[in-house]
Amino acid sequence: MNPKKQKYTPRERYKARWAYVFLAPWLLMFLIFYAYPLIYGTIVSFTNYTIGSMKWIGLENYRTIFTDYRFWRSLRATIFYMLIVMPLQVFVPLWIANTIQAYKRGFNTAVKLVAYIPGVTCSVALVLAWRFMLDPNIGFVTSFLKKIFGARFSPFNTASTAIPIIAVLIAFTNLGATLIIYSAALNAIPADYYEAAELDGATRWDQLTKITIPLLQPTIVYVFITSTIGALQIFVIPQLMTQGGPNFMTSTVLLLIYSAAFGDNKFGYASALGVILFLITAIFALIQFRITRRETVEY
């Protein structure tokens, strides 16, 4: 007998049955809209699925992906976005949180609110405003840049300028949530630590690098992982700013999935791309999962 099972009294067994009732709505949603699509998508990735027909073609889709320049360009662009977005999302809110820590409620809250606003706005509305500012012909920001870099400068014609611009726009739409996370973590550090350090003659820089940063390390790791996973899902802003062009140089993996399925009607191929994206993300999620588990042992 499993010793675990013996721990249930009849009363507890009755209650455990109710637990499954309470769990049922979530479990149903999980099975139909998460677990089943995951399995189904993996199966579809081995077929040449188009709406209405489906034929098993084995690893053909994967073979095509790895020889498809569109995939390599999208993957390269996704990593390029990630390398700019991730450090900005990790360190800029940390710096803001540390700066506003000294202020009382009013200014402190105001900064958090303002930083959060782009995050609750329709991203499409924001993109329309940015497109007005950054239009290659009539945008006033572009014309200002042209004065600096020369009249032929066109920021969205090459990935080396388009991706950094879009990445900065993406990074600063999500400042708010991370800022709040860091602020809460900063507040949780006991004041005694700083007082003791100050008595021992530690400078402010020492306090930042020897107390604040080490104690915030779990939070920093969390933000690092979630922003990395988030960067793998970049879609809306490149899609509306450049459509991934020119020729997939500013595309992302998710954008390629979208255009393969809904542009080319290649659902099998798109599913195979989805499986690859899923596996890449799962690696980061797994790292995060292990770290969180370690910290929530006492529950």
């Binding site: 998460y34 998508g41 988030g230 999935i257 899923f278 993300t281």
Partner: peptide, 22 residues
């Protein structure tokens, strides 16, 4: 399972989710 779905955004399942919905 809750934690796993918390870490894995749904966009990844874009195509299968659409096919299931379809």
């Amino acid at each position: 399972l809750v934690m796993a779905t918390l870490m894995m955004p749904k966009q990844m399942l874009l195509i299968p989710n659409y096919l299931v919905a379809y």
